[in-house]
Design a binder for these strands. Structure first.
Lengths: 208, 208
DNA sequence: ATTTAGTTATACATAATGTCAAGTGAAACT
DNA sequence: AGTTTCACTTGACATTATGTATAACTAAAT
């Protein structure tokens, strides 16, 4: 016997409150990962900075790993990367498309440089987190394929995709910029490298 | 009063025993960091695999960080990188020097790919460890400077050193090779990138 | 008025780093 | 020979972080 048959219940207004707490927690996590406040970034610190309890974090994100994945996701969704990629691909000149795409990823990475570096490091140490992060990079691989398609059939090689994919990775920008320069400043070098490499490919594939 | 004035004591034969335990521990640490045995790499695991107590590890390396620094050091010393760099610089053709240097670092990184990746990740999360690791990379920076000197005065620019330094970093090889290929296979791409970039620099700096 | 579900407050289990102190044993000294 | 030195061991303990379990609380939905 069931004295209280389940009653239908939609969250309605409560959804926005939930979304707000999630946003607060994610924001706190990003800030702490970026080094604000302290070097520390324990779940306790995140919760305290977000003004919630540690249990709320577990409630919303299941685990530390879940929180970090969500941090990555929210960043990818919130940014203006899609618009910038769209703008890049609307250019006619393939070389300008390449430049636009590289610039787009440069500012994307630059916006979260500090915490992206740390979350990626955590992804190296925690394979499951690493896979989750890597899965989010498919978009970039597709973008590079599309760029090469624009440049003509000669460029549609798997190896070239791999090279452009690697050249536009966070690691490449981060290492090229080094500890002193802003990450965006690496964009011009990445572009030069990509251009020079592609030109060389063109030269060697064209019979003379 | 001091009934037992300090007596002179040289370690003598005991040194070799100490060196052996250090080597055992470092070996165990490298193997576990490379993923052998398990994903785990706690001090307990390292000690167990080395056949010593956790306290011995603290005795020899002060802390986890000290152990990791020592792992990096022992690797840098033990490898054949110096010989290969020497051989590279003994070539006459600057382009062959460049190729030799890139190959040398490729096999250097490849020999410890898995654990280097993890230790570098730990260095990102622990700034002190990160500095210690980064300090060990000065040799590479000097090597790149020397390569550019061989190519003529036109190439002796700080920015070019930075680019070659970044191109020969572990991260570059690791991302270029991707998860499937061997790290050494990235060497040819790195070389192509460096060559193409330098050729472009030469072209744009030469007035036409 | 009652149910629902996110949030809180607490207590607890587990695991890892790091410290402390007493004891062991073999090599180094006298 | 007997004694001293020092790395290594043994075991206990403090600290901190992640993660789990449970009951109380609260505001919104019925």
């Amino acid at each position: 016997m069931s004295p209280h048959p389940p009653r239908s219940y939609r969250l309605g207004r409560r959804q926005t409150a939930i979304a707000r707490t999630r946003a607060k927690v994610l924001r706190a996590a990003r800030e702490l990962l970026a080094g604000k406040g302290d070097g520390e970034c324990t779940l306790d610190d995140v919760a305290r900075r977000a003004g919630v309890t540690r249990m709320t974090v577990y409630n919303q994100f299941k685990s530390r790993r879940g929180l970090l994945e969500a941090v990555f996701d929210s960043f990818a969704q919130g940014g203006e990367l899609p618009q910038r990629l769209g703008a890049a691909f609307s250019r006619g000149n393939p070389d300008e498309v390449l430049a636009g795409v590289i610039d787009a990823f440069a500012s994307f990475w630059a916006a979260g440089r500090k915490w992206i570096r740390r979350v990626r490091a955590l992804g190296v140490l925690d394979p499951e987190l690493g896979e989750a992060i890597e899965a989010r990079n498919d978009r970039r691989r597709r973008a590079m394929r599309a760029v090469l398609e624009r440049m003509g059939p000669r460029y549609e090689q798997a190896e070239l995709v791999g090279v452009l994919y690697a050249l536009t990775s966070f690691e490449t920008f981060d290492t090229l910029a080094g500890p002193r320069a802003r990450l965006e400043d690496a964009a011009s070098v990445v572009l030069q490298l990509a251009r020079a490499y592609l030109k060389e490919v063109q030269r060697s594939s064209r019979p003379r």
